[in-house]
């Protein structure tokens, strides 16, 4: 319950933060909303010498539209992502998934950037951002780079963000005419999902023109169900067609096994939840 002692800095700008991160003489941890980091510190599974809080950096907060792209500051809280009208209008899937994260208290404090960099394969944001084909804006000593969500996550709790880098913003293309579905399967409400599925479809002329389906907790990183997406493209928005397309949802996945289910069960769940999410998305798109 009591973390190991550490020093604390709360820089006011990204530049100052990067300077602090560049200090490799001591172990540094970045504190965003802290909803994953603080439990780890309290359990003493980590003992950084310096904690750099991003809380004072205003430029990391807020949501705006740039051309047809949503730009969401990394320090935007889940509660704000869930209720921000711009996100609701242009990327409703993101708003929906954000509203499902943990519980209200955590959503009042936790941030999208923190959740993404924490890269827990079971958390709601990574798979959702993969479905949305978001672009991650990362800044470091050698400048800024933009990484597609699909390449951002490397392993359990591991992303491409280096120790001297910061995730500053997440860019999400506009999905104005898409229907969405989000399925999160848990045994009790506050549990991490056993499997989650984020889905979007765009209908055109009575059939599915495009689909995006991403799976959470089916591997050490979020997984795009490419086979399902391909099968859905051009398919009729019917129960049968969607079910047939989603039967392959678990292909190529490598789910963790734990007390909540073995791999067989999780693979099966992925197909059921994918079908339900896609059907919800189809209904949402107005089919």
């Amino acid at each position: 319950m009591i973390p190991s002692a550490f020093d604390y800095e709360a820089p006011a700008t990204v530049a100052e933060a990067l300077t602090l991160l560049a200090d490799d003489s001591r172990e540094v941890k970045v504190l965003a909303g802290g909803q994953s980091l603080l439990p780890v510190l309290k359990l003493r599974m980590a003992d950084p010498e310096l904690v750099v809080s991003l809380q004072q950096i205003d430029e990391l907060r807020g949501v705006r539209m740039e051309d047809q792209t949503l730009v969401i500051g990394a320090m935007t809280r889940h509660a704000d992502v869930a209720r921000e009208p711009l996100i609701g209008a242009h990327a409703p899937l993101l708003a929906r998934a954000a509203a499902e994260i943990a519980d209200p208290q955590v959503r009042h404090r936790g941030t999208i950037g923190g959740a993404v960099v924490h890269a827990d394969p079971a958390s709601d944001m990574p798979a959702t951002l993969c479905a949305l084909e978001a672009q991650m804006q990362v800044v470091g000593p050698s400048g800024q780079r933009t990484v597609p969500a699909a390449e951002f996550f490397e392993d359990f709790f591991t992303t491409v963000v280096e120790e001297d880098e910061l995730l500053t913003a997440i860019r999400v293309p506009s999905y104005d005419d898409w229907g969405i579905g989000y399925e999160k399967f848990t045994r009790v409400a506050q549990q991490w999902p056993i499997v989650s599925v984020a889905a979007m479809v765009r209908l055109e002329g009575g059939s599915i023109a495009e689909a995006r389906v991403a799976l959470g907790n089916m591997d050490t990183v979020p997984v795009r169900a490419a086979g399902v997406e391909a099968a859905l493209s051009g398919a009729a928005p019917t129960q049968e067609a969607v079910a047939a397309a989603c039967a392959s949802a678990a292909e190529g996945t490598n789910p963790t096994e734990d007390l909540n289910g073995d791999a067989t069960y999780r693979r099966h769940l992925a197909t059921v939840l994918a079908r339900r999410a896609v059907l919800a998305a189809v209904a949402d798109a107005g089919a």
Partner: peptide, 9 residues
């Protein structure tokens, strides 16, 4: 707004 005060410094 509600927060969990065990998870905030």
């Amino acid at each position: 707004e509600s927060i969990k005060s065990c998870t905030m410094l």
